[in-house]
Structure formats: structure tokens, C-alpha cells
Design a protein around this nucleic acid. Structure first.
Length: 243
DNA sequence: AGTTGCACCTGGCTGC
DNA sequence: TGCAGCCAGGTGCAAC
């Protein structure tokens, strides 16, 4: 990548994309614990040669700044995609719609849910349907929509694949939870930070995630948040008001 | 074709 | 204090 210029940065689902001046595309994923930190070098000052324990990649930018990538668990990855292969690349080809874009609406979701035999939790977590929802936000969205994670995915559509009341509620909930989370700077469980090191604060506003045994927040609901395991991942929900 | 379970890693917390 | 066991923002792939 030496000598190339980053012409454009974008995000698709959970992928970060850096378009390089030679037409290559640097595709990056943070996995669970990946973190980028941007450091402006003070004029003329030598940057420290110290390497953080889990610092795996450092981009030295022209003019001094560095962009370093740390990732304790190393679930994250970077791939250089040759010019023109973006659309057909296996990691990008099947990505679903952006949750905050216009393509996500009740009609789309109902169409994709038609005939699905998986549960709603797995359906929403599937990046081929909606690109960008992780375990936390799926749990939180289902709570807001008052839908059970164990309900069949196909029940958010009519028998003909048209939207019903649940579809509408779900689309609204997905959008709202992401907008609220972004507004709060994201969720910092332990590793997540902004590129300038700042922490997010949405973890303090979880309604169900990590609240096993605690009372449901919904007005008039006397339920207790439960933790179950679906597809090997924790799901938190209120069995009383999420149906 | 669609699902499920496991593999990939390290670190932090809990309970004995 | 030490250590085993469990858990964690995700994805890909092999096996059904």
C-alpha cells in the first residue's frame, strides 16, 4: 500500500472500506475487539517506537499522523481487493441492506422473512438480510418492538410475504435503537473506542442486554429479563411483554 | 439451499 | 493466591 492515497472511506454493514488511488480496495473488519486509533504526530516530534501489546497494523500517513489497529482477540481482519472486484467479492456480494438506508422498509423485511424457518433473532443477526446489526442491537431492537427472539422469522410477514403490524414495529425499532446508539457514541463494553480514544455511552442505556434477572423497563410490565442461548449466542429479553 | 455447530483467539470475571 | 471454567460487540466453513 506504500505510496497509495486513500481517496475515499466508507462503511458497508460492519465493514470499513478504504478506496486506494491505484484502484485497490482495503476492506477491514474489527471483529469483536478491533480498534483503530488515529494519532496526530506533533510537528517534528519522533513517534514512540513502543508497540502496544496487541497492535497489529500501523499505517504511517504522509505528513506524520499514524492510524494504528489493535485487536486482542484477532477476530478482525483486513483484505486487499483488486480493482473492479468489489461487487463480486465473496465478503461483500451477499450483504443485505443498510439498516438506516431507504432500502430497509417493511416491504423488504417481509419479503425476506417469507418462508424462513429460523427464529427472529437469527434472522435479524443475518448480515445477508440487514447488514450491520450485532448481538446487542438485535436484542435491543426486539425489545423495543416487543417481539420475542424465539418467534419464527416468517411471522413478521403475511402468508404472501407482505408486511404486517410486526414488520412495521420491527423496522421502526431497528432504526431507533441504532440512531440512539450512534447518538450516544456507541456501546463501549470494554474494547470499543472512537478513533480519538473516546468511549461511547450507550451501554448505560441497554434495556435488556446484560440485564438478566432485572425488571423489565416497559411501563406496566412486571416481567423479568431472561438470558437464553440461541445459535451459541446470548439473547436477553422479557418473556412477558415480548411475544 | 438452508441451518447448526464449531473454530478462530485473548482476557476478564467468578467460584472453588 | 491459584486455577479451572465460563463468558464476551463476529464471521467462515464444514457437516448435516
Amino acid at each position: 500500500m506504500t505510496g497509495r492515497k486513500v481517496e475515499r472511506l466508507e462503511r458497508r454493514g460492519k465493514y470499513l472500506l478504504a478506496h486506494l488511488s491505484d484502484g485497490q480496495l482495503l476492506l477491514m473488519h474489527l471483529g469483536m475487539t478491533g480498534c483503530f486509533t488515529v494519532r496526530k504526530s506533533v510537528n517534528g516530534e519522533q513517534e514512540s517506537a513502543e508497540r502496544a501489546l496487541h497492535e497489529h497494523v500501523v499505517f504511517h500517513m504522509r505528513g506524520g499522523p499514524t492510524v494504528s489497529y489493535e485487536d486482542p482477540r484477532r477476530f478482525g481482519f483486513m483484505v486487499l481487493i483488486p480493482p473492479g472486484e468489489e461487487a463480486t467479492h465473496p465478503l461483500l456480494r451477499h450483504l443485505g441492506v443498510e439498516p438506516l438506508g431507504e432500502q430497509l422498509d417493511a416491504a423488504y423485511l417481509a419479503r425476506r422473512a417469507l418462508g424462513k424457518r429460523t427464529d427472529l433473532k437469527a434472522f435479524l443477526s443475518d448480515q445477508r438480510i440487514i447488514a450491520g446489526l450485532g448481538n446487542i442491537y438485535v436484542c435491543e431492537a426486539l425489545y423495543r418492538a416487543r417481539l420475542s427472539p424465539t418467534r419464527g422469522a416468517s411471522t413478521v410477514a403475511t402468508a404472501k410475504g407482505k408486511p404486517n403490524a410486526r414488520t412495521e414495529a420491527l423496522v421502526r425499532a431497528v432504526r431507533e435503537v441504532l440512531e440512539d446508539a450512534i447518538g450516544a457514541g456507541g456501546s463501549s463494553m470494554r474494547d470499543y473506542r472512537h478513533a480519538d480514544g473516546q468511549l461511547g455511552s450507550f451501554q448505560h442505556r441497554f434495556c435488556v442486554y446484560g440485564r438478566e434477572g432485572k425488571p423489565c423497563f416497559h411501563k406496566g410490565c412486571s416481567g423479568t429479563v431472561q438470558r437464553i442461548v440461541q445459535g451459541g449466542r446470548s439473547t436477553f429479553y422479557c418473556p412477558r411483554c415480548q411475544r
